[in-house]
Every structure is written in structure tokens, then in C-alpha cells.
Computed example of a mutant assay.
Amino acid sequence: MAAGDRMISVRSILLGLAFAFTAYLAARGLWWTEDVQNPSLVIAALLLYLPTTWLCIFWEPRLAADDDDPVESSVTAGVRGPTRLPVWISLLAIANAVVVPAAISMGVTDDIRTEPFATWYLGGIGALMTIVMARRRPLFAWLGTVILAALSALWMGPLNALALGLVGSVVWVVVAQLLIRGLDRAARDTAQLAELQRVSSAWQASQLTRQRERRIQVQRALAIAGPLLTRTVSTGGRLTPEERLQARLAEGRLRDDMRGPRLLDDDVRAEVERLRRRGASVTMLDEGGLDGIDERSLAIIRSELAETLRSATSDRLYIRTSPHTRVAVTVVGRSGTENGLSDEDAVDLWREIDHPGR
């Protein structure tokens, strides 16, 4: 059986038990062993009590919680726990706590007010207030319990009320409040543990990703620089001009892979290598400006970057990602100064590549 099926089964069993128990308590009020002075009043009290109690048991909101309901933040609300009763049902339960004891007591004579069929409301209203407490209306539940205690003491005397079931009703309400608090606390702890586990799993996944990226970078570095290093060692550092160029290009490729991997594709790599072969200095730096961008947008940005580099004639190029919400990449080109011009005047390329669709 699935977890959801088990939850539904347990919920159905609890609702069924609550329904049967309140029906039993009300049925005791019809088991008359003595003549009742005003049976219509007693029956009217029962007809008020049963629909109210079953409404408190079975009522469910259209949403898991009202927008202005503070229990919305409770992790056991809604489908994972009892939802909060609306105010009008809670007020109806309070009306029962006032009307039912008075109607039953006035419907029988003074000498039989302590008979089981005349004292059922002690357990009945206590059960109703327990349900109200479980449905997250503690103030209404305690108000109804206080009213029950006051009216039962008034109609049958304090000692009789305590002896015939008032104590049990109060205990039910207390236990219900403790259970709801305990369930909420346990559910909050479970949610916190689940969040910690989620964060831990995400951290572990990121570490595995970084390890894989580092491993790939090491493999790429060995593939690029390995033959050159072997040649350098074998010749004692005496390299030909072409080998020195290859070493400089290999160093640039490694720097690009470490500093700006998200800026690179085959076209960008080819243009960067072309620029370096003609003697230009190219510096790439990804400072996180491309984080969270999908592959389609990255492809558009790289295509524009490759086109920009294809037409560049600068001696020094600086390619950096931008934290700006509109600009994705900034390309700055500078060339050697003449006639004493400053570096500021030597900027001969400035290109801002925007985020696609912005």
C-alpha cells in the first residue's frame, strides 16, 4: 500500500471513530429511563448538536489554508494534518456549549438531572470542544469548555459535574492541544531535516560536478601541454620559434579554459587562437555573469563574441562577463599609443553583447 493510501486510510478511520463516538454520546440522550418533562426540547438539543459536531469533523476548505490564516505556515496543515475551522463553525460550536446543556437541563425535572440520559452533554460537548481544538481553534475550544463547566455546575452542582464527566472532558481538550502541538513540532523538525538533506545533497552534487570539471581540465591540460613539456625536457629548454609559439598558445588555451569556460566554443577558440598567432594578447575572464543562462542563450552570446573577435584589430583584447542585467559580455580592445597619447585614448574597440531577449 502506498504512503498516500495509508494516510487516507488512517484519516478515514479517525473520522469514522469521531463520527461513531459523537453519535453514541448523543444516542445516550434518547435512552430515557425516566419520564422526560419536555422531550421536544431534548430532541431539539440533539438535532442542534449532531449536525454541528459532524460539520466540525468533516468540513474541509477549498484550499489547504486561508490566505490570512496563520496556520498556513504550519507544516501539518492541509492534506498533512487537520485544517483550521472557519470562525462561523467555531461560533456554532460555542452556541452548542451554551444551548445544549441548558436545553437538556430544562427538558428534564430537577430530580433526574444526574441521570445518564440527562448528563450525556458533559461528554458530548467535551468531545465537540476536543474536535474544535484538533481543528486548530484553541481559544474557541477553551471558551466552550469553560462555558460547559459553568453551566453544568449551575444545573447539577459542581461536585456532580466533576463526578459525572466534566473532568474527562477537560482532559480530552488538554490532550488534544498537546497532541496538535507535538505533531506540529515533529512535522517542523521533519521539514527542517528534509531541507538540510536537500541542501546537503545539492552541495554534494556541486562538489562532484566541480571534481569532474577539475578532472576534465587536468586531462585537457595534459593533452595540450603534455607533448610540449616532454619536448621541452628532452631538448633542455632549447625550443624552436614555432615550438615557443605553440607553448604560448597552449598556455593561453589553458588560461581560457580556467578563467572563462562558459565563453568558449569552437568558433571562439579558433578566433582567439588566430589573434594570438598574429601577436595579439587576449585575456578572458568569467566572473559569474553568465550563471543561470541556458545553452541556447549562451550559443547566441558566443556567436556574437566570435563575430566581434573576427573583426578585431587591437593589440590587446579584454573579454569579461558583465554583472549588468542587460549586458552579458564586454569586449575592450587597445592598441599601442602614438604621439604621447594616453592609454585611455588607445581604446579602439568597445563592444557590449546584450543578453538575448533583453
Rank of each mutant, 00 (worst) to 15 (best):
A2L: 08
R6Y: 14
I8E: 14
R11I: 03
S12Y: 06
I13R: 09
G16E: 11
G16Q: 10
L17S: 14
L17K: 05
A18N: 12
F21K: 00
Y24W: 10
A26Q: 01
R28Y: 13
T33P: 02
D35E: 11
N38H: 09
S40I: 03
V42G: 02
I43W: 09
A44Y: 09
A45W: 01
L47S: 11
C56P: 03
I57Q: 01
E60T: 10
E60C: 07
P61T: 04
D69Q: 03
S74D: 06
V75F: 13
A77C: 05
G78N: 07
V79F: 13
P82V: 00
T83E: 00
R84E: 04
R84I: 02
P86C: 10
L91A: 13
A93H: 02
M106V: 04
V108M: 06
V108I: 07
T109G: 14
D111V: 08
I112W: 06
E115P: 01
W120V: 00
Y121F: 15
G123L: 08
L128H: 02
M129C: 13
M129R: 11
R136T: 09
R137G: 00
L139G: 08
A141D: 10
W142D: 00
W142A: 00
W142P: 02
G144E: 01
T145V: 04
L151S: 09
L159K: 02
N160G: 01
L166Y: 07
V170P: 00
V171T: 06
V175M: 05
R181I: 01
L183Q: 10
D189S: 08
T190V: 04
L193H: 15
L196I: 09
Q197V: 08
A202Q: 14
A205R: 13
S206I: 08
S206Y: 08
S206W: 08
S206F: 13
R210Q: 12
Q217K: 06
V218D: 14
A221D: 11
P227M: 00
T230I: 05
T230N: 11
S234K: 06
T235I: 09
R238G: 03
P241Y: 03
E243N: 06
Q246R: 11
Q246G: 06
A247N: 03
A250D: 08
E251G: 05
E251R: 07
E251W: 06
L254C: 10
D256H: 06
R259W: 05
R259P: 00
P261N: 05
P261S: 07
D266A: 11
R269T: 10
R269H: 15
A270W: 10
R274L: 13
L275V: 12
R276M: 13
R277G: 13
R278Q: 15
A280Q: 13
V282F: 11
T283V: 11
T283Q: 08
D286A: 03
G288T: 04
L290V: 07
G292N: 15
D294P: 01
D294A: 09
S297N: 13
I301M: 12
I301K: 02
I301F: 05
R302W: 07
S303Q: 15
E304H: 05
L305R: 11
T308E: 12
S311M: 03
S311R: 11
A312K: 05
D315Q: 07
I319C: 07
I319F: 00
R320M: 12
H324C: 12
A328S: 14
V329C: 03
R334P: 05
S335W: 10
N339M: 14
G340H: 14
L341D: 12
E344D: 15
E344T: 09
A346W: 08
D354G: 02
D354W: 02
P356R: 07
